[in-house]
Amino acid sequence: MRDSSSLDIAIERDQGKASSIRRPFLRVLPSAITIIPVSMLFGVLAYRADWSMLEVLAAGFLGFTGSGQFALLPLVDTNASFLTMLIVCASINSRYFPIAFTTTKRLPKTFFARTFVSHMLGDEAYATERSGDTVKETLIIRLTIFAFWVVSGVIGAIVAQVIPSAWLTTDIHLGFPASVVLVHLSVSQIKMRVSGIFLMQSVMVLTCLLLATAFYWWLGPTYFWIPSVIMTAVVLDQWKKHE
């Protein structure tokens, strides 16, 4: 009898472990699938720019950043300096600085694990994560996106060897599904976060979107992030205080 109940407990524990892995994996899977064509496109373009498979793999693994990787291709082609590349990449990805701050509580405590998991932070992962997620759930979400991105890039480079060059000149917009996913996740997150906190929520959202648009037109898509995010946060803070 005791053996039977021990077995039941062991099975339940195993099921619980499987479920704790499966749930965050299934949550992030749609986002991971939509980034496949984008990453494959990077692999294709890098291969066409005479990058080797190892270089495509290293760029995805060590330099995991969608827009930064694409921006790097012409810079490498023109033999730009390290400093130039760093300034461009850091400017494009500066949004991660404040984003990373907000995720510290769901990261591992040990230095190397914390470093690796924070390196795997991406837009899609951040939009999928929830503030109550455990370290394990955060790891699974980020690792899934990261693995899909790195592997898809290499597959793209392999595909580039066999597909005719003319196919690459078509007007297919491969990045659109990833944009759609980010919009969906962002709207869901905002709905969850602002509900019950602000009065006149529609007006508040519209004001913030107009503010971000103004910064985008004023400073451009590369440099608008930090000032725009800070000003939007100030507006949200004031809106909350004056309700």
């Binding site: 005479d50 990058w51 080797s52 190892l54 270089e55 290293a58 760029a59 060590l62 330099g63 995991f64 950043t65 930064g68 990787q69 790097l72 810079l75 490498v76 082609d77 033999n79 300096s81 390290f82 590349m85 760093l86 990449c89 850091a90 990805n93 500066s94 949004r95 991660y96 600085f97 404040p98 990373a100 701050f101 995720t103 510290t104 990261l107 230095f111 914390r114 470093t115 924070s118 390196h119 932070l121």
Partner: peptide
């Protein structure tokens, strides 16, 4: 690996350390 690509990958890695790792490992 070509020198230009290595420089580019190093820039991407350093960017990641600056904008993603530094905020969570340094005790601000």
């Amino acid at each position: 690996m070509s020198e230009g690509v290595i420089t580019g990958i190093a820039a991407l890695l350093f960017t990641s350390l600056l904008v993603r790792v530094l905020p969570v490992v340094y005790n601000f």
